[in-house]
Amino acid sequence: MSSANVLMPQQATILDITEETPDIKTLRVVGKEGMPFDFMPGQCAMLSVPPVGEAIFSITSSPTCRECLEFSIKDVGNVSGALHGLQPGQQIGIRGPYGNGFPIEKMKGKDILFIGGGIGLAPLRSLIGYCFAHREEFGHIDIVYGARSPADLIRKSEVRESWAAEPDTSVYLTVDAEFPDWNGHVGFVPNYVSELAFKPEGRIALTCGPPIMIKFVLQALDKLQFSPEQVITTLEMRMKCGVGKCGRCNLGSVYVCKDGPVFSLDELNALPSEY
């Protein structure tokens, strides 16, 4: 029996802020005594800026990073807007971690295919970092990442330089249309996945991005003969509690904040499609 109020945030301090794109910033956050809490890739945290309020964000740093938590945040609402307006050194509220996280046991020994779009790289990045830190537990790693324009790609140098240099790892970048400063691949992420023709055997695919991208990525993977159990995605919903009680993020009797946000496609297919 716990005696702490699960809704009570702890104090945290913003170490620094990186501008990733015109509307995405990455905040590095530390608690009073170092890490606010332990977590696993794919889990989320509630960040709060009084009097604006609280909102849930996925943790983008890897749990193997023991200095701080990182959040890549797109300015789309009141709380994200308020977070964008903060400066290093300022304090916020934080609570968590919430959610199930990615099924790491199920991924072990398999080749891993990451498919991300735009800000959707944020939750995948936590897992990518984890995989690199436990490199021997996983097979070949492919990372397909795209955005509308080169300016909308987040963690560019990390993706291009550090990730591409990791052993037994391939990185594929793409943007939706031609841009003067872009000499890489041009095309939508789902089409690029089809072109690259990944084989399903012994492989797990994990995807996150805008809903429309996910929809077509799922179709592309289906065409490539991936079975629903091999495909994993993570959902976004409006959330207030993070512990399956406030009533907003359910799909049937499953609560995305608590039982998700990570689902395999076969799990998702068995739930009401209300997301």
Binding site: G53, K240, C246
Partner: peptide
Amino acid sequence: CYCFDVEDFGHE
């Protein structure tokens, strides 16, 4: 019915 919201009341 038990759904709830969380909100702040106050100023900066």
